[in-house]
Amino acid sequence: MRARVHAGDPDAFRELFDEHVRSVYNHAFRLTGNWSTAEDVVSLTFLESWRLRERVDVDVEGSLRPWLLGIATNVARNVRRAARRHDGALARLPKGGVVPDFTDETAGRIDDRERLALMRKALAALREPEREVLALCVWSGLGYAEAAEALGVPVGTVRSRLSRARRKLDRLTTGGVRSPGEDREPPSGHGQQEGDREIAVRSAQEKTR
């Protein structure tokens, strides 16, 4: 697959999309907190993957999922920066009439929107690099080495960012009470860490009690 993607094989990219689009979409939503923006990130991620196909290392084995999630992380950063610039430009415009906001109406179709809102509020207190490594290691289930590959940073940086992110979430949501074994190495290639995700969800819920 790596060789075929590197060579620009269209069939390989279709297979790559079919296999990983859901994972990329979930990761994009966790970084942006917006369904529509996540869809834009997915589209841009696979366009970028085509543009960057020759950077795929064909001399190593393993899934291209970390590579795609790394591209998605960079795309999400750029999308957020563009959104901030757009919001800043709007804020400088003369005040006009109130424009109805249909966001809540759309979000009403999501059964777990309240829980997602609580989680986004807790995660918003983290620095961007900490949110990214948390999304990769906890939510997307990448190991330290895979997350390091996705972000283009050393493994030690991933470990320290994840540790800081967990400590901050502890302070913000549970008063610093940690669960035994929480600093264990994330498993590689086995999906999300359900235990850590449940801790994050439970912590966000407890914050509102």
Score class of each variant (00 low, 15 high):
19 E>R: 14
97 G>Y: 04
65 R>G: 03
135 A>R: 01
199 I>G: 04
74 N>H: 08
16 L>D: 09
173 T>R: 00
75 V>S: 04
188 S>E: 03
126 L>Q: 13
87 D>V: 12
108 G>H: 09
110 I>L: 15
165 A>Q: 05
77 R>H: 15
49 S>W: 02
18 D>Y: 11
183 D>W: 05
198 E>F: 02
156 G>Q: 10
69 L>W: 11
72 A>L: 03
107 A>I: 01
162 L>T: 00
141 G>Y: 02
92 R>L: 14
120 R>T: 12
128 E>K: 06
75 V>C: 04
87 D>G: 08
113 R>L: 11
207 K>D: 03
34 N>E: 12
4 R>Y: 08
142 L>A: 08
163 S>H: 08
120 R>L: 11
58 V>L: 09
198 E>N: 10
208 T>L: 06
119 M>W: 06
167 R>C: 00
174 T>I: 00
61 E>P: 03
100 P>K: 09
82 A>D: 14
116 L>Q: 10
137 C>G: 02
81 R>F: 06
3 A>R: 15
23 S>T: 10
49 S>Q: 02
154 P>F: 03
66 P>E: 07
175 G>N: 01
3 A>T: 13
138 V>F: 04
108 G>R: 12
137 C>N: 04
117 A>N: 09
205 Q>G: 01
175 G>E: 01
159 R>E: 03
50 W>H: 13
71 I>N: 14
36 S>Y: 13
2 R>H: 11
186 P>L: 01
204 A>H: 01
9 D>H: 09
198 E>T: 04
186 P>S: 02
140 S>P: 03
52 L>I: 06
46 F>T: 14
184 R>A: 13
23 S>I: 06
154 P>V: 07
38 A>H: 03
206 E>Q: 14
175 G>D: 01
209 R>K: 13
106 T>D: 08
85 R>M: 10
46 F>M: 13
130 E>Q: 15
